[in-house]
Amino acid sequence: MASTTVTARRALQRYASLLLAVTVAGAVYASASGDIGVRSPLPGVVTVVLAVASGWATGAVRTRRWPLFLVAAVGWLVLAAAAAGVVASYQAGARLRGRPLAGYLAGAAAVLAGGVLVGQQVGGVRQITTATTGNVLLLAVCLVGFPLLFGLWIRARRDTLAALRDRTERLEREREAHADRVRAEERTRIAREMHDVVAHRVSLMVVHAGALEVTTTDPATTEAAALIRTTGRQALTDLREVLGVLRQGEAAVVPERGLDALDELIGESRTAGLRVSRQDVGVPTALPATLGRTAYRVVREALTNVRKHAADAETIVRLRYLPDGLEVVVRNGPSVAGPELPGSGQGLLGLRERVELLGGRLEATPIDGGFLVRALIPLAGAA
């Protein structure tokens, strides 16, 4: 039932101008023939021409008003037909303001006065209808007054709705701006808390590692302390970049490494004790920067998980260059070492979203007692 009503309303809105034009043309012809007005003694061709002109002017009033005003005046003076005049008065109230509206009222008064003169000359029913004082006042009210007031009311309602829409849009923009400010303040608060807590503890770790590096006499301990100190400083640098994003807003971008830093990443993992080897399959080609950064992130996240869960396992990093993309595979064997570090799995979830944004696929699954991370990243998504 509701769909039928909506369909009927849309059809009415679509054909409203045509329907009104046909109605006005029919009313003008009926008025001239005496069915709903004063019968005109003029030839029928004159009646048909004025009826068609009235219908056309009514249909074209959205783009041109003066034809309707003209045929309304001619129709009243020649045929005493009021249909076009009623529509013209409504349009004047709905669309005219200031001097144009005053000009229309002056013109309407002149046309009514001219109708009185014509009625007196023609005599008979025409004189009684259009030239007597009572009928002239009634015609002025019905032909000009009521339609004009209705048009003014429609215009005022339309202006009020437009003002309400503007106010709603302004309030919505203000609400969004307020939400942006709240988010910015929250980002700043998070950044401050992260700096106070995380950066402080990492700094202590770096200081203690540096002290251990200086005081110990064991070469292995010295090397491990140096690695901890270097890694901690890099962590502080990365943390500052992340905090900069939180402070500056979402538009800021943290500079990320690409495939050109992959050997350095693997070297750091080897220094940390992982047994990592790299394999390149296919002919290396120039890749988009976005693809390179995503591939680097895949390898970094996979090696981080290996350090957490299988630090003693043999690990292979394989890049396979394809005609339409890049396949990144990080696979580690089974681990026989001690307890694993806890993990939330959020890294792989974020990584999957990052790969899928480029139109690729990410697979992360246990295999033969170890673990496999495979990402297929197309060139088209990163271009």
Rank of each mutant, 00 (worst) to 15 (best):
A199R: 04
R275D: 00
A235I: 00
R233Q: 07
R229P: 00
R233S: 01
S269G: 09
G282A: 05
R175S: 14
E193T: 06
V253L: 10
I266P: 01
G273E: 12
R181N: 04
V254M: 11
D238F: 02
V214I: 14
A272S: 06
V245M: 13
G273I: 08
G273Y: 10
E250S: 13
A179H: 08
P284I: 11
R293H: 04
E185H: 06
V276M: 08
L243Q: 13
S269F: 00
T216P: 06
V245N: 10
R270I: 01
R187N: 12
R181F: 04
L265G: 07
L227I: 04
D260A: 14
A235D: 13
V207S: 13
D180C: 04
S203W: 07
L262H: 10
R181E: 14
G292D: 01
L291R: 04
E250K: 08
G267M: 01
G232C: 13
L243R: 05
R175C: 02
E241L: 15
G282E: 02
A220T: 14
A286Q: 15
R275L: 01
G210V: 05
V245S: 09
E241G: 09
A191C: 07
D196K: 03
T188F: 05
H208S: 14
A261V: 01
D218K: 00
M205F: 14
T294P: 09
R187T: 01
V206D: 08
P284H: 09
R175E: 12
Q248N: 15
E264S: 12
P255M: 03
V207A: 14
V253N: 00
S203K: 03
T290C: 05
V214L: 14
L274M: 05
G258H: 00
G249Y: 09
